[in-house]
Amino acid sequence: MDVQDDKVMQKRQILKFDLKKMDEQVKEVSDDIAVEFALTIKVNGEEFATMICTPTHLKELVIGFLASEGLIRFKEDIEDINIDINTGFAFIELKNKSIKASEFNEKRFVGSCCGKSRQFYFQNDVKTAKTINSKMSITVPQCLNLMSLLEGQSKHFKKTGGVHQGALCNSTDIVIFQSDIGRHNVLDKIYGQWLFKKMTLQDKCIVFSGRISSEVLLKVAKIGVGLIISKSAPTNLALDLADDLGITVIGFVRGSKLNVYTHPERIIT
């Protein structure tokens, strides 16, 4: 089971400076800090990866991560899953006992900041990243509204400012919402939760708070969604991949503005 909110955020006494307040430029206050949690995944008895994450929806995180990495295709491929919060281990037994985690990758450390973990996303991408043929279309006001809905969701972000947020949405509302200190973890949690629900993705998009890196774009492709809407910027490699995989990338969604970078045919003007 997931831990409670008091394990997701911790209180810490800090000094808060505000030079505009002449009478009280510094004061000691209690601040909410986002928690980093290390979760080691063992598959069929083999150590597979250690993830740094927010300790919520860990079952969805693990299942989504295994699906993204190509070890499973459906949640039914898992015979048993046991997550021990106290020791920080997730024990996964697959129905296919011949699958060896070591054959997919050596033991890996997947950090909360995606920049140094790119090499971990190329080994199985050819098998798991899909060319998308989504029929979804969306208007600019709908994009702006979805971003507004996302920003109103996460109490952990409002209190700490230290987590990313993401959601699987239709054109008007949020269907699945997740948050985590790691951008890629957010998408794995969404993927894992979707594997439990198994709804159609033809009319769905991903709305996201973080930068659209190549890793993020590949996660979206592996989920099978044809449109990602982000408050932040994309990278050039992410856009190259989006061009090739048929994914519409929308970035810098702020206020009344946004940029459409790839496959604008899904935007209703």
Rank of each mutant, 00 (worst) to 15 (best):
I33F: 00
N145D: 12
P55R: 14
K59E: 14
A221L: 04
V29M: 12
L94N: 05
L19N: 06
I78H: 01
I78K: 06
G152F: 09
K7D: 10
K97W: 00
D243L: 10
T172S: 15
V110K: 02
F120S: 11
D2K: 00
L19T: 09
I174D: 02
I176H: 03
E93V: 09
F109I: 15
K127W: 08
T172N: 13
I85W: 05
F122D: 11
D2A: 06
S102M: 02
V260K: 00
F65G: 04
F208L: 05
N170P: 13
L19I: 14
L94I: 05
L149C: 06
L15D: 11
K158I: 14
V216S: 08
I78W: 06
G88S: 00
S148Y: 13
V62D: 03
T54F: 05
D80E: 14
L217K: 11
P264D: 01
S154N: 03
I78Q: 01
I99N: 05
I81W: 08
M136Y: 12
K204W: 07
R108V: 09
S148Q: 14
I14M: 02
T172G: 10
I138D: 08
K130A: 00
I99W: 00
K16S: 11
K155E: 12
K219H: 15
K59R: 10
I190E: 00
V62M: 05
A129P: 07
G162L: 02
Q193N: 15
I190C: 08
S209M: 07
I223S: 06
G64D: 02
G111S: 14
T56W: 06
E265A: 07
Y191L: 03
D2M: 04
K135I: 03
I228G: 04
I250F: 01
I138T: 06
F109V: 12
K127L: 04
H184C: 09
T56N: 15
D2Y: 04
V220R: 03
F109R: 12
T200W: 01
D173I: 03
H263I: 00
V29L: 12
T87N: 09
V253C: 09
T160R: 05
S68Q: 06
L39H: 06
P264F: 03
H263W: 00
T248I: 03
K222N: 10
S134R: 10
L66P: 08
L187A: 07
L58Q: 06
L15E: 12
S213T: 13
Q165P: 08
S134D: 05
D180Y: 09
L150S: 09
S179R: 13
C143D: 05
K159P: 12
N185R: 12
S30L: 14
N145I: 10
G246H: 03
M1C: 11
G161S: 14
G182W: 05
F37K: 04
L239N: 13
T50I: 02
V216K: 07
S102G: 02
I72E: 00
L19E: 03
R73M: 02
M1L: 11
I72S: 02
V175D: 13
M9P: 11
S154P: 05
